[in-house]
């Protein structure tokens, strides 16, 4: 095995998930990352959708205006 690699390959899933007793801290960190990134994307999509709704409304108004002018 080349130097600098894991000396013991991951054999037991339970060993992997226990992270040598640091499971809470390590998985907690990556869970926090997932929640924050997911949250940011969700908020952004929500903001975009609010825009679309608003856009449809103004498009509707414009149509009405065109009708009244016509």
């Amino acid at each position: 095995m080349p130097p600098g690699l894991r000396t013991e390959p991951v054999e037991q899933m339970s060993d992997f998930f226990s992270m040598g007793g640091y499971a809470f801290y390590i998985w907690g960190s990556y869970l926090a990352a997932l929640i924050l990134v997911g949250g940011e994307i969700a908020l952004l999509v929500k903001r975009k959708n609010a825009l679309k709704r608003h856009g449809l409304d103004t498009a509707g108004n414009r149509e009405l205006d065109n009708d009244s002018h016509g």
């Binding site: 600098g4 690699l5 894991r6 000396t7 991951v10 992997f16 992270m19 040598g20 007793g21 640091y22 801290y25 390590i26 960190s29 990556y30 990352a33």
Partner: peptide
């Protein structure tokens, strides 16, 4: 994440805890 969890070795001082580094 694959390289960080399956290729990188365990740290001799901090054990597995250092793997938080890859996101921190």
């Amino acid at each position: 994440l694959y390289v960080g969890f399956f290729v990188a070795p365990t740290d001799f001082q901090q054990g597995e805890a250092y793997r938080i580094m890859f996101i921190h």
